[in-house]
Write a protein that binds this DNA or RNA. Structure first.
Length: 590
RNA sequence: CGGGGUGUAGCUUAGCCUGGUAGAGCGCCUGGUUUGGGACCAGGAGGUCGCAGGUUCAAAUCCUGUCGCCCCGACCA
């Protein structure tokens, strides 16, 4: 039992100027966090209580899923990272943690870094500690602060430089067992999000810089999310934008019959899809071939799409380049023979085809019959271009960005799109890290094998904000019972009346015995102030005790998510409070 | 890092264009009146106008630089 007047809940009437979205404003207004700097926040007493509740539920579910808790250092010797598989990509977001030192060490290379995640620490640890199949499988996790120098921190805790994350790492003897560990974590995640009262969906995701073979993101649907989820309710398909595919191209598609030989025509000044669509040319965008030039590991390569399609850059990751980027006009002309806007891949028109690392095309270009594309000659295009006959494509793949309305692969129904906040991610890693750090074990035939890994993350602090984003109204936060900082607010309108405070303490004690955390608002404030604050901080159950009610012989009982107020006779108050708490606990599954 | 915006009291901000006494609301302190949905009256404290240069008789205001913060893009739990 805590008393508001002695506790610390600095609420704000107005939203801070730097907060944009509802959950960020409410985090600050309800006194849950305060900003130190960009992406750096103090968890105030109330906010910390929420974090602790989420943390505890997360711990319980991950343990149930096979996790063993430990805690690793936040400061890492840089060598751990330099020896790992992704130092080049990761160092950009890593904070240096150099010792103040004597100034002798050259400033270029850090001596220590702050951990953004812990594959580089756990894998060497497991390598030395686990050498036998008898000790596998193992799944180690921690719930700890992570450090990432985000290029652009924003939306409060949503993307912070310092944040709390649950990270788990599984080690298995083979692929099949690794998939079991992966599925156990997926189930643990689902249980976790269900328990904290957050609606989340698991979507297929790109593995990105983590590498690995497959992965799911856990998304909380929200307008302010930073990711698009493509889904089909009928088939249950859900994927993020980077990964999503559709059945746009029928598998039995037959190529259109060529209408005639490839023919060059003059298009002075035409360098965009739109300009070629316009009069006098009138070539629809889906009848054009778009040719993009990228540089992969130093060598140019081409990607061909329909004129109406957009490249999904993440899908280029499947091509196996370590690093890739769009080519500059200066890099394009010597290879292609023309400037961007007149490019194409018709056989024999590329100036220096041997310089290319490959010509890739999206499947959807097969829908284009007798299309138009650049002639690799400034101011000229080619028509009657057909894929099989005319294009120098080396390999087809899925490179285009899926749009809403395209048919789902399984059900054929139109795909839908909605925004979501990514709160968790699971990866089946494979042997990328075990190979690099030599994490091997000996099996019962005395044979050595690489451990097969998985890694798993839940953004704890981000989840706290996602809960608010998903559960609030115009007056403030509406906490789900399991993560509320306190579950019951005893609002004493006349704390100077001894009988009011006596009753408040009695009812608070009853609620506590029934299993609730209780906050007593004993501040000497006007009722309006207390009610506004109560709605703002959003505790699930409110008991109101006032001089007026006492004269009538009642106290009031109100759920935050409901409008109506129940008047309870004093004689029944204790029992009713206990019953309400018990009911809430039961329906929250606590 | 590229593009845009912004910095004035603890918070929200006006003033800046057109240079001349730094203003309001909330919050805070004192006293009084109030008391069931962010009260009222009276009095009070609180500001190097982000920082550094420059122009000027005079700079919150104009110029240059710099730093912080916010938004859009690439990246992520």
């Amino acid at each position: 039992m805590k008393f508001w007047s002695q506790y610390f809940i600095p609420t704000l009437k107005e939203s801070p100027a730097d907060a944009e979205i509802a959950s960020h404003k409410l985090l600050v207004r309800a006194g849950l966090v305060r900003k130190l700097g960009g992406g750096l926040y103090t968890y105030m007493p109330l906010g910390l209580r929420v974090m602790q509740k989420i943390t505890q539920i997360c711990r319980e579910e991950i343990e149930r899923g096979g996790g063993i808790e430990l805690e690793m250092p936040h400061v890492h010797p840089v060598e751990n990272w330099q020896n790992g598989p992704r130092w080049a990509a990761a160092r950009e977001i890593m904070f240096r943690a150099d010792s103040a030192g004597d100034g002798k060490r050259p400033p270029r290379e850090p001596e220590f870094v702050l951990g953004p995640t812990h594959e580089e620490v756990i894998t060497p640890l497991v390598k030395t500690e686990i050498t036998s199949y008898r000790d596998l499988p193992k799944n180690f996790f921690q719930i700890a602060t992570k450090f990432r120098n985000e290029i652009r921190p924003r939306y409060g805790l949503m993307r912070a430089r310092e944040f709390v994350m649950m990270d788990a790492y599984s080690f298995d003897v083979d692929d099949e067992r690794a998939i079991k560990s992966y599925l156990a974590m997926k189930a643990a995640y689902e249980a976790f999000f269900r328990r904290i009262g957050v609606q989340s969906i698991a979507v297929e995701a790109d593995t990105g810089v983590m590498g690995g073979s497959f992965s799911h993101e856990f998304m909380v649907p929200a307008e302010v999310g930073d990711d698009d989820v493509i889904y089909c309710e009928e088939s249950g398909y859900a994927a993020n934008r980077e990964k999503a595919t559709s059945a746009l191209v029928p598998p039995d598609l037959a190529d259109a019959a060529p209408a005639g030989a490839v023919e060059e025509f003059a298009t002075p000044g035409v360098v965009t899809i739109a300009a070629l669509e316009a009069a006098p040319y009138g070539v629809a965008a889906d009848k054009q071939f778009k040719t993009l030039v990228y540089i992969g590991d130093g060598k140019p390569f081409l990607v061909v799409l329909r004129g109406c399609d957009e490249l999904e850059e993440a899908k280029l990751g499947a091509l196996g380049f370590g690093l890739f980027r769009p080519a500059t006009p200066e890099e394009i002309e010597p290879v292609m023979g023309a400037k961007p806007g007149s490019l194409g891949v018709v056989k024999g028109t590329i100036k220096n085809q041997s310089a290319l690392a490959g010509i890739f095309a999206d499947h959807a270009i097969r829908l284009v019959g007798n299309g138009t594309t650049g002639a690799n000659k400034d101011g000229f295009h080619l028509r009657n271009v057909n894929v099989a006959r005319d294009l120098a494509v080396a390999k087809f793949g899925d490179f285009r960005r899926v749009r809403a309305g395209e048919p789902d692969v399984k059900s054929g129904r139109p795909l839908q799109v909605r925004r979501g906040i990514e709160v968790g991610h699971i990866f089946k890693l494979g042997t990328k890290y075990s190979e690099k750090y030599g994490a091997v074990f000996t099996d019962d035939q005395k044979q050595s094998h690489l451990m097969v890994m998985g890694c798993y993350g839940i953004g704890i602090s981000r989840t706290m904000q996602a809960v608010i984003e998903q559960s609030h109204d115009n007056d403030g936060i509406v906490w789900p019972w399991p993560v509320a900082p306190f579950q019951v607010l005893v609002c004493v309108l006349d704390p100077q009346l001894p009988e009011a405070m006596d009753l408040a303490k009695k009812l608070a004690a009853a609620a506590e015995r029934a299993g609730a955390d209780v906050l007593v608002d004993d501040r000497v404030e006007r009722p309006g102030v207390k009610f506004k604050d109560a709605d703002l901080i959003g505790l699930p159950l409110r008991l109101t005790i006032g001089g007026k009610g006492l004269k009538e012989g009642i106290v009031e009982l109100k759920w935050r998510k409901q409008k109506d107020v129940a008047k309870v006779p004093l004689a029944e108050a204790e029992a009713r409070v206990a019953a309400a708490v018990a009911e809430a606990r039961a329906s929250a599954g606590v």
